[in-house]
């Protein structure tokens, strides 16, 4: 029977190995990281077991505040752009024939799976002086000389949107593909214009998933660590870059761990927020 209670120790056997693996290699590393965030740092990259708050006190610096504000700002901007463009696009995809849908999904998943290193490299080429878009503009007569647009804020934003866009579509795909196709059809039959149908029926009945996707894309972009180093300047570094930098180059694992714990609390709050939003406001679903 399926869905019964496991009887005896033997029935629990299959869960033993996965539970041990996840416990040893995920829960314990996590615990060690949290512990290290309270350890005292020794000069020269070592740390000793202790219970000090010094690492957390170091969070209250101007540098940390500035990096935090910038990370939130660019992630929010990227999330708004991606959802604003991705929502209508995902809607179009879900109304396509199945074969066309699969082709688009293959493209999106392929782009999503690409390493940020590769995407950063591709965009730095796209925006470079020798191989970039500006050459096309010169050829079209729109510009005088080819110029370099990378690194910079806009280069970083382009790269981030390129990474986050496929993710946005895949987040929006399930709720939109479950939207009853008769709903917009009924609105059209009753005389609403296509634009009005889209905004009042499609957007209106999916308000919950839209807000949830905004938060998810925001959290996803907040975690970026490679693109700011490739496409941005040092003032465009995000929290993730700072955490990696402290851990590897400054060998200050305790401070790095404290930042990570803080970052995790922010992320968990975002996840909780997504779940709360996702529960309400999904009318018109089958």
């Amino acid at each position: 029977m399926i869905g019964e209670k496991p009887r005896g120790l033997g029935a629990h056997l299959p869960v033993f190995y996965p539970a041990v693996m996840l416990g040893v290699f995920f829960v314990i590393p996590f615990g060690i990281m949290v512990a290290i965030s309270f350890f005292a740092r020794q000069p020269g990259g070592f740390y000793t077991p202790a219970f000090v708050m010094a690492n957390y006190r170091s969070l209250f610096t101007e540098l940390f505040a500035r990096v935090m504000v910038f990370s939130i700002y660019i992630a929010a901007l990227c999330a708004v752009i991606c959802v604003a463009v991705g929502f209508p696009f995902t809607y179009f995809i879900t109304r396509m024939r199945r074969k066309a849908q699969v082709i688009w999904l293959v493209l999106l998943v392929s782009v999503l799976s690409l390493s940020a290193v590769i995407i950063g490299f591709a965009w730095s080429l796209m925006l470079s002086q020798t191989a970039g878009l500006s050459n096309l503009f010169v050829w079209l007569g729109l510009m005088e000389h080819p110029v370099s647009w990378s690194p910079g804020f806009w280069a970083l934003l382009c790269g981030l949107c390129y990474v986050a866009f496929p993710y946005t579509v895949l987040v929006l795909y399930p709720p939109l593909s479950r939207l009853d196709p008769y709903l917009p059809e009924a609105a059209l039959t009753l005389g609403a214009s296509p634009l009005k149908t889209f905004f009042s029926v499609v957007v209106g009945s999916l308000r919950g998933p839209i807000v949830a996707s905004l938060i998810m894309v925001f959290a996803f972009t907040l975690g970026t660590y490679l693109l700011p180093q490739i496409l941005g300047r040092p003032q465009h570094w995000t929290l993730s870059v700072l955490i990696t930098d402290e851990a590897i180059y400054h060998s200050n694992l305790p401070f790095s761990a404290a930042m990570a714990v803080f970052f995790m609390i922010v992320s968990l709050a975002l996840v909780a927020l997504t779940m709360m939003v996702g529960k309400g406001g999904t009318a018109g679903q089958r």
Binding site: V15, P18, A19, L22, F25, F26, V27, I28, P29, F30, I32, M33, I36, A219, L222, G223, Y225, S240, I243, T244, A247, L253, S256, A257, A260, F263, M264, S267, V271
Partner: peptide
């Protein structure tokens, strides 16, 4: 709880999971 545990490594910002692994393997 078990399912969430299986989902968590991928849901958290990757740098956090990575730092957890670093702490663990260094120890």
């Amino acid at each position: 709880a078990l399912f969430m545990l299986g989902i968590a490594p991928f849901m958290l910002p990757p740098v956090i999971t990575a730092l957890g692994f670093l702490s663990f393997w260094a120890t």
